[in-house]
Design a protein around this nucleic acid. Structure first.
Lengths: 358, 358
DNA sequence: CTGAAAGCGCTTACAG
DNA sequence: CTGAAAGCGCTTACAG
């Protein structure tokens, strides 16, 4: 009755209607302790009646928080980024936060200014950085200069005074390689990722570790440096498959390149997996949209994003109390997905170890 | 010298340093007319020196705008959404806006409250809705109740008092069908999209229109209802290809389903495109990551998003002046991408019309 | 357990 | 062409 029609209600409207001060309304809404049950109920009743919702901008002006988390990414089409975004939006919603997305070219000369401009105006409570941006010194510096907390996702380095979340790329690559070896493959081709991405080296190391553990030689001629794109997978496949003695399996550092290998193999008339086993990395949507579906590694992208958001919200909360520079490094479990693109080299000699199908 | 170290400068700092009022600083920053050149230069100089950046939250409190645009989507993995997001972030940056993303389940029973809660707290200057959310009455109602402007992307309906941007799905589907017919195909299978998406019906109509224009019958047994997912493409392919007289071409309403057809065909030992031509719709990244690459339609997702953002920014700007309920419906051009998954049925009899390759 | 006051950093009328 | 004042809707100290 008393509320002005047209404009949405404010904290003052609620306070008047409930017969309390705006401070008390604020206390109830922020779930602060020390409010009489009866008062609390009365306030909540009026809040519901008026459909009152505190505006983010006003909360941001008064308090120190913007309730905004930023996600900085480079390649929006990457399966990794898609998973991270999905996980982050869901986690944000649980806590009344919102996710702001920004895409940047990692090699843009003015990237410092781009990040600086964005952060200094938006004032997010925290930023989530995906590769390769999380390893870009200019980006990190712009964030520090603006005193904006950030979490690195799968970074190449894990400096002591920072937050990061990742999976064990090296271990996962080792597992994939072990799978191929257990299927009887000994001549295994490997396609590396982009040189500027930390995961490229880690996955290669895992491959080498598994090979050496089985006394298999890593032939230089069977390792090709790609850049995580489909075309580089096609090119790598042509190189590797043109060797006098062809590899019987190819492990590509990500699914896009593995799909390139698959396409090249099919074009060359090879039957996958009968003539060639293929494995990728990422569990991109396309990995299960081809025939045969790709053996690959599912990265815990949702979980990584969820943990990252939580770190940022918590850090902001503790900020007021303790000025202790915090840090945390989390490593989340991945999952090996064995699908039809990999098969035993000699079914009779090397029985398939009944892998879990997905 | 005079600026307090630690906290970032405010409009007051700039005004003092420049020897003008904060109102004048505000005028310069907002590019309002009626400021002496000399004064303007002086202000800009101090702004640069202090690296002053107006905070969004404060601008939002004072004025009516939040400089936030929301993007509401259902399936984040969809190529359509990815393209829209990329186009929207870039266009937002040009105007100092930021893109907030939220994913929703279209069939969530409390979807009204989800949208209401988000919008009433965030107060974005506008929202962009992707299918099928743009056709969900509850979502639209929640937006109207909060007086939040919105643009519908490829909606099923185009009510007079709303903003929308789309491409001509029916025409594009007609063009794809015409291509297949020009290649000599007469028995063409069609896989429909999800029943709750407007594009499904439009694309089917385009298919029918092209067939009828060439006096070809649309056999019911050659039309399968899918749901835009890969598995439904696989299932549809098995049904269509099990007919006594097989179709020589299959047109799927989107790429995911076309990839399902491709996978199924390859599994059945059919050679694509020699034994079967396939066409899709979307130009998803996977469409060019398979062999053979898919003939498909590139939707102008970037451009659609860019136009949508512009509509919202403009609408908000005019809002103060004229209270005239505006509306606008834009139709953007698409592109037919002819790739190797489609081929002439009888190369000698029907010479390939030298289509543009991509 | 509750409240009155000040302040966050801008913009919008309103003057001159 | 420029400015002093009020206000946007919250929160943070500070009292009692």
């Amino acid at each position: 009755m008393a509320s002005k029609v047209g404009s949405s209600p404010t904290i003052v409207d609620v306070a008047e209607q409930a017969g309390v001060s705006i401070k008390t309304v604020s206390r109830v809404l922020n779930k602060e302790a020390g409010v009489q049950d009866k008062t609390r109920e009365q306030v909540l009743k009026v809040v519901a009646e008026l459909k009152y919702r505190p505006k983010l901008a006003a909360r941001s002006m008064g308090g120190g928080r913007s309730f905004l988390i930023g996600l900085l990414y480079y390649d929006p089409s990457a399966a990794f980024v898609g998973g991270v975004q999905q996980g982050a939006t869901l986690r944000c919603r649980e806590s009344g936060y919102h996710l702001v997305v920004e895409s940047l070219h990692n090699d843009a000369p003015d990237i410092y200014n781009q990040v600086d401009r964005m952060v200094s105006a938006l004032r997010p409570d925290g930023m989530i950085l995906t590769p390769p941006l999380c390893d870009n010194p200019k980006v990190l510096q712009a964030l520090r200069d603006n005193e904006t907390p950030f979490v690195l996702l799968s970074p190449g380095q894990e400096p002591a005074d920072q937050f990061s979340v990742r999976m064990d790329d090296e271990l996962a690559a080792e597992e994939v390689t072990n799978l191929l070896i257990s299927l009887g493959h000994e001549r295994i081709g490997f396609i590396r990722g982009a040189p500027d991405q930390a995961a490229s080296e880690l996955r290669y190391r895992g491959f080498v570790r598994a090979m050496q553990a089985h006394d298999l030689t890593v032939e230089e001629s069977l390792v090709w440096e790609g850049d995580f794109t489909f075309p580089s997978g096609v090119e790598g496949a042509h190189k590797l498959l043109s060797r006098s003695v062809r590899p019987t399996a190819v492990f590509a550092s990500n699914d896009d390149m593995a799909l390139g290998v698959l396409a090249a193999a099919q074009r060359l008339g090879l039957n996958v997996p009968a003539d060639l086993s293929i494995a990728g990395f990422d569990d991109s949507s396309a990995a299960s949209l081809v025939w045969p579906p790709l053996t690959t590694v599912r990265q815990p992208t949702h979980e990584m994003a969820s943990v990252a958001v939580e770190m940022l919200i918590t850090a902001k909360g503790n900020d007021a109390e303790a000025a202790t520079p915090q840090s945390s490094h989390r490593v989340l479990p991945h999952q090996l997905l064995v699908r039809d693109s990999s098969r035993a080299l000699h079914p009779s000699a090397h029985p398939h170890p009944a892998p879990k199908k997905v």
